[in-house]
Amino acid sequence: MTKMKVEVLDRRQFVVASGAGAAAIIAGFSSAANATPEKAAEWIKKLTNGAKATEGKIKVDLPEIAENGNTVPIKVSVESPMTADNYVKAVHLIAEGNPAPELCSFYFTPMSGKANAATRVRLARTQKVIGIAVMSDGKVYMSQTQVKVTIGGCGG
């Protein structure tokens, strides 16, 4: 029985780490225990100096269903001419449902040519990923992408 518990813990290390109790570990999806939309909102405020974000321009690609939350491919692109006086300065990616919402920030320059980037991230559970684009003129755009994160049947 002890062995079994170790397996479960292993698969849900994020839940464990977020300080959720044993009950939440068994329940798995007891979302309130580690939801962090407030922390995410705080982080976004810090990144954008409280500027108002408009929906659009930025596109965040995630698999509809992530096969494993440990390694989820993520791709971002922002519409912009990327010229010296009109370019994307930064893109911030935020995971609302992670124990710590910060994923990463990309900083572009006109030399980038395109405001495109891709990486792989850890997502603790099914959630919304927020993309924030900060333009050279100070305007801020945002997007929200839903991603399903599967809890594996085969821990192995």
Binding site: E67, N68, T150, I151, G152, G153, C154
Partner: peptide
């Protein structure tokens, strides 16, 4: 078929050593 949220494979080992997303 699905075992919980995973799709069962035939358990073939032609790709080993395999990089598993889970193992990282």
């Amino acid at each position: 078929k699905q075992i919980r949220a995973n799709t069962l494979s035939e358990g073939q080992i032609n790709g080993f050593p395999t990089y598993r997303l889970k193992w990282q």
